[in-house]
Design a protein around this nucleic acid. Structure first.
Lengths: 151, 151
DNA sequence: TCTTGACCTCAAGTATAGTTGAGGTTCTAT
DNA sequence: ATAGAACCTCAACTATACTTGAGGTCAAGA
C-alpha cells in the first residue's frame, strides 16, 4: 500500500518556498548558481529532496553571517553529492563557519574599540591613530601606500 | 610673508586620493552621493578643505564596519555645515557607530553560538533549533510565517 | 610653446543578490 | 472538462558601490 500521509517524499518549489520562507525566485536563483539542485518531473517542474530544506536554512544562516553566496556554495560543495549529508557532514560545515565568524567578530570588535579612541578623540593625531594613515608619510611613500587594510 | 611650506590650504582631488588611499573615481562617487563636498577653482577643478581627509577616513572606517553609504551620509550630515567639526562633533559620531557596532557584534556572536548547536548537530530537530523554523508549523501557519528574523 | 599629466563630465560596465514581468505550460480540484 | 493556481524560461530591472572608457579641458615644467 502507498503512504497516504501528507509527508511527501519530494517537494515542489512552492512547498520549499513556503517551508523555508525563501521566495521562489530566490530558489531559482540559488539553483542557477549551483547552491541547490533539483530533478524535474514529467512536466518539467522542479522536485526537491527534503534535504533541500536544511540546505536552504544553512544558506540563509550563512548569509545572515555575511558570507557571500559564492563562499556558501563552496562550503556546501564539501557535502557529499550522492548520499544524504550526515550529522558529521553538517558539523564540518559549522566548524568552518564558526571560525569564519570568530574572525569577523574579532575584526569588528577591534574596529569598535579603535573607533572610540580614534574618531572620537577629535585630535586628528596622524601618528597615533591605528584607524588613520599618517597622510604625509603616505604622500611621501608613493603609490604603494594603501591606507586601510583590505579586511 | 606667505607660507612657503608644502602645507596647502586646499587639496586637489589627486592629493586627497594619494593621502587617503581612496581612488579618484570613488571620491567623485562620494561627492555625487553627498558624502563629501568641494568648491571649484577657476578651471572647474575640485578643491577640498583638509578636513575632507578625516571625513574620508571616517567613511572608510564605517564601511569596514559594514555600514552602508546612505547611513554614513546620514551620520555625517549631523556634522556642522559651515564650521569645521570639533572633537565633540566627531565623538558624537563615534558614539553612534559604537552602538551600531555593538549590535552587529552581538548578533554575530549569537549566530555563531547557535551555529554550533544547530547546523553542527545534524539532528534536524525542528522544535529546538533557533536557527531553523519548524517547517510543518510554518506550512500549517499560512503565509504569515517568516522563518528567519530580518536582522 | 608645447607636451604631458591631471583634471573634467557623462555613459556604460562590473559584481552581488536577487525581483519583476511577459508569454507560455502544467497541475489539480471541481 | 475546464478554470485557476502553480509552474516554466528568459530578459530586464533594482540596489549598492564602485570602475572604466570616451572625449575633451586645464595646468605646469622643459
Amino acid at each position: 500500500m502507498k503512504s497516504a500521509g501528507p509527508l511527501q517524499r519530494e517537494l515542489s518549489i512552492g512547498a520549499v518556498s513556503a517551508r523555508s520562507g525563501v521566495a521562489v525566485s530566490a530558489l531559482h536563483f540559488y539553483e542557477s548558481k549551483g547552491l541547490i539542485h533539483s530533478r524535474r518531473n514529467s512536466g518539467n517542474q522542479r522536485r526537491y529532496p527534503r534535504e533541500v530544506l536544511r540546505r536552504v536554512a544553512v544558506i540563509k544562516v550563512a548569509q545572515r553571517a555575511g558570507i557571500p553566496l559564492a563562499e556558501i556554495k563552496e562550503a556546501l560543495s564539501t557535502l557529499p553529492d550522492e548520499r544524504t549529508p550526515t550529522a558529521e557532514d553538517w558539523r564540518a560545515l559549522s566548524i568552518r563557519w564558526h571560525a569564519e565568524l570568530d574572525g569577523r567578530i574579532e575584526r569588528l570588535t577591534r574596529l569598535r574599540d579603535q573607533l572610540e579612541g580614534c574618531i572620537g578623540c577629535g585630535c586628528l593625531s596622524l601618528r597615533d591613530c591605528p584607524l588613520r594613515n599618517p597622510g604625509d608619510l603616505a604622500a611621501a611613500g608613493g603609490p604603494g601606500a594603501r591606507l586601510f587594510d583590505p579586511q
